[in-house]
C-alpha cells in the first residue's frame, strides 16, 4: 500500500502541484496574460480558449518529449514553433467546424495561441528535458490552471459586464451593466486582483 506521504515525494505529484499551484502559469509566472485579458469576457469564450490551450499543450508535450533526444539543439526553438503552430491550426479548424459561434467571437485569439508563452515556456523548460509521462502530467496541470483561472476571471467579468452567466441572465434587469469590465481595462483590474489574491494565499515572495 502506497501512502500519501510517499506519493507526495514522487516526481509526478510534484509536477502536478507545480503546475496547478506553486508555479501557476498566470499568477506565479505571469505568462499567457495577453490571451487571459482578451478572451475572459464571457465564460463560454474562456472555456473554449482554455480547452484549446490545454489541447495544444498536451499535443506539444507528447511530441516534444517523445522526440526530445533527436531534436537538434540548434533548431529547437523553431521546432517548438512549428509543432505549436500545427496544433493551433487543428484547434482553429475544429472550432470552425463544430463551434462556429465561439470561433467567431474569439476569432483571432485562437491563432495567437501560437505566441502564448505558457506553451513555448513549458516546451523549453520542461518537455525538452523530461520523459513523456511527466511532460503529459505537466501539460495537463498547466492547461488546467490556465483554464480555471480564465473561467474564474470570466465569471466575474460576465456577471458584472453583461449580467449573465454562460449566456443565462443572472442579474435583475435593473442591474447597471459595468461595460468597462467587459472591455480590456476591466480585464486588467480583475486579473491583477486574481494575481494579488493567489499570491497572498501562496505567500509568494516578491523579488
Amino acid at each position: 500500500m502506497v501512502t500519501f506521504t510517499e506519493i507526495k515525494k514522487t516526481k509526478s505529484y510534484q509536477t502536478v502541484l507545480d503546475g496547478i499551484w506553486r508555479d501557476h502559469p498566470i499568477s506565479s509566472m505571469v505568462l499567457g496574460i495577453c490571451s487571459a485579458l482578451a478572451v475572459s469576457n464571457t465564460v463560454a469564450n474562456a472555456i473554449a480558449m482554455g480547452a484549446g490551450v490545454t489541447f495544444v499543450l498536451l499535443a506539444t508535450s507528447l511530441l516534444i518529449s517523445g522526440l526530445r533526444n533527436i531534436i537538434p539543439r540548434r533548431v529547437r526553438m523553431i521546432t517548438y514553433m512549428i509543432v505549436i503552430a500545427s496544433f493551433v491550426i487543428v484547434v482553429d479548424r475544429v472550432l470552425k467546424a463544430y463551434f462556429p459561434e465561439i470561433s467567431e467571437s474569439i476569432g483571432p485569439y485562437v491563432g495567437l495561441i501560437i505566441t502564448n508563452c505558457i506553451i513555448m515556456g513549458r516546451a523549453e523548460a520542461f518537455y525538452s528535458q523530461n520523459n513523456v509521462l511527466h511532460s503529459v502530467l505537466d501539460s495537463v496541470a498547466n492547461g488546467f490552471s490556465y483554464t480555471y483561472t480564465l473561467v474564474a476571471i470570466a465569471i466575474v467579468r460576465e456577471i458584472l459586464g453583461f449580467g449573465t452567466l454562460l449566456g443565462f441572465q443572472v442579474m435583475p434587469d435593473s442591474f447597471p451593466k459595468w461595460v468597462v469590465i467587459s472591455m480590456a481595462p476591466g480585464a486588467f483590474f480583475v486579473v491583477s486582483l486574481f494575481i494579488w489574491i493567489t499570491r497572498t494565499l501562496a505567500k509568494v515572495e516578491s523579488d
Partner: peptide, 23 residues
C-alpha cells in the same frame, strides 16, 4: 538533422491533412 526534419514533417503533415479533410 535530415532524419529529424523528415520525421517531424511527416507527423505534422499527416495531422494537418487529416484534420483538414475531416473538417
Amino acid at each position: 538533422m535530415i532524419v529529424f526534419v523528415l520525421i517531424l514533417g511527416t507527423i505534422l503533415a499527416t495531422t494537418l491533412v487529416g484534420v483538414d479533410a475531416f473538417t
